[in-house]
């Protein structure tokens, strides 16, 4: 009896210690992000509590500033274009990768994933040296090409993972019924792996939308994206407008997280059917 009691007490102690440290870590992870949300609604100039009053002036500042709206537009254009390219190239490559078992597949896989591994500053400087003589610096084309290269591996990882759970007999059944490869892909494979492709596309968009190092080197003043404007803002003088932009971006990440979770569930359900 006595031993169980001691054991329970020490167990209770460890459990309390575990919860305490974990809660402190959660606070560390979330508090700074959440702390800037109320500041964006402040009517005052200073980024400090207590807030003098409620106002939407920093949001008005964002939505009426040509500089900020142009950067948002740039981020959207570059993000959407590179996502479309990366998703198309990445999905097709994933279809090949799950069927391939030739020699050198490991090397090819390594090459396809290398943009995820190489430190961004090296990638950015490499692009800068390479694009300058081709006239691709300070152009949308250059930026979209660079972001496509960075985003494609995320599509490959996500879609190959989805295809691993895909029953290839379905494709064979379609082929045996006379469908050609293109019809099989669009009518049978794509509808079933669509949730995986969509998550890959979301990863790709998030990669481009949050990228700043390559933008710093490759983009000109015309192509400054939202993260690029934030970078200057933080470096020069952090204004309440930045907290408003940050709040909008936090909202954006929450939407992204929810969308990915919904896609994950849908994918799991589809696997259950097939």
């Amino acid at each position: 009896m006595a031993t169980t009691q001691i054991r329970t007490r020490s167990e209770r102690f460890w459990s309390a210690a575990l919860w305490t440290t974990s809660i402190l870590v959660f606070v560390f992870l979330l508090a700074p992000i959440l702390a800037i949300v109320p500041l964006s609604f402040s009517s005052g100039q200073f980024l400090t509590y207590p807030i003098p009053g409620f106002s939407l002036r920093w949001y008005a500042d964002f939505f009426t500033s040509d500089k900020w709206l142009h950067s948002l537009w740039n981020s959207m254009v570059v993000g959407v274009c590179s996502t479309l390219l990366a998703t198309a190239l990445g999905t097709v490559a994933s279809l090949g990768l799950v069927r391939a078992n030739f020699r050198g597949k490991g090397l090819i896989m390594g090459l396809l994933l290398s943009p995820m591994i190489v430190p961004l500053v090296i990638t950015a400087v490499g692009f800068y040296f390479f694009f300058a003589p081709l006239g691709l610096t300070a152009s949308y084309t250059g930026l979209i090409v660079a972001h496509t290269a960075l985003a494609a591996p995320f599509v490959v990882v996500t879609v190959t993972a989805t295809l691993q759970g895909f029953d290839m007999n379905l494709a064979r059944a379609a082929a045996s019924l006379g469908a050609n490869a293109t019809t099989t892909f669009f009518k049978v494979i794509l509808p079933l792996i669509a949730p995986g492709v969509a998550s890959g596309a979301l990863f790709a968009f998030a990669t481009s939308f949050d990228e700043v190092v390559v933008v710093l080197f490759v983009a000109g003043p015309e192509q400054r994206t939202l993260p690029r404007e934030m970078f200057s803002g933080i470096r020069e003088n952090i204004s309440p407008t930045i907290t408003a932009v940050a709040t909008i971006l936090i909202l954006f990440s929450i939407c992204l997280l929810v969308a990915l979770e919904l896609l994950r569930r849908r994918n799991a359900r589809m696997r259950g059917i097939s």
Partner: peptide, 15 residues
């Protein structure tokens, strides 16, 4: 936090 923009998190720490 994993999905929150890198610059948002950096801005948060500056604040």
């Amino acid at each position: 936090p994993f999905w929150t923009s890198l610059l948002v998190r950096t801005a948060a720490w500056v604040v």
